[in-house]
Amino acid sequence: MTKEEFGAVLDRAGLKLSDAQKTELFSVYPLLQAMVARAHPEMPREAEMSIMFNAEVK
């Protein structure tokens, strides 16, 4: 993601960040993306989540 795209995502989220704040967040964004990539390994299409829907609502 380019810095412009990164800024667009934050703007769309409704956050009012200064340019300086966006610049700092963009500088660590690759670290978050590395975590996202680690949490996206090859998994079978049918792999279930760790959270479950239960029709018996409490």
């Binding site: 993601m1 380019t2 412009e4 795209e5 990164f6 800024g7 667009a8 995502v9 703007d11 769309r12």
Partner: peptide, 13 residues
């Protein structure tokens, strides 16, 4: 949302 932001968002994902 502006057109530019929408394009950027599409590219971003």
């Amino acid at each position: 949302m502006s057109d530019v932001s929408f394009e950027a968002r599409v590219r971003a994902v």
